[in-house]
């Protein structure tokens, strides 16, 4: 694991939320997204947004999410995705 990658692990949930605001919601700075908000129910990410999150997690955290792990258990909230990423890196 490179130094660069481990630095980026500071507060992954916030990084995930930042990515959703900037990339998926097209730089929507006004929206307030909590770590435990249901991203899917609130339509903050849709099925195509999920695919972009998978790319982002690979790029940002060096974690490859296999297709069978792309489930609501891991993508419902930023907090759940963060836990998944940390577990995969442990």
């Amino acid at each position: 694991m490179s130094n660069e990658k481990s630095l980026s692990m500071e507060n992954p949930a916030l990084k995930i939320i930042e990515f959703i605001k900037q990339e998926i919601l097209d730089n929507d700075v006004d929206i307030d997204i909590g770590e435990k908000d249901n991203l899917l129910q609130l339509n903050l990410i849709d099925s195509l947004g999920v695919m972009r999150m998978v790319d982002f997690v690979k790029r940002e955290f060096d974690v490859i999410i296999p297709p069978e792990d792309i489930t609501i258990e891991h993508f419902r909230t930023a907090d759940l995705l963060c836990r998944y990423v940390l577990a995969k890196r442990a």
């Binding site: 249901n38 899917l40 990410i45 849709d46 947004g49 489930t71």
Partner: peptide
């Protein structure tokens, strides 16, 4: 079908 399942095909199939 809960809203979140409609966005995640693997969970929807389950």
């Amino acid at each position: 079908v809960p809203e979140d399942h409609t966005k995640i095909p693997v969970s929807l199939a389950q």
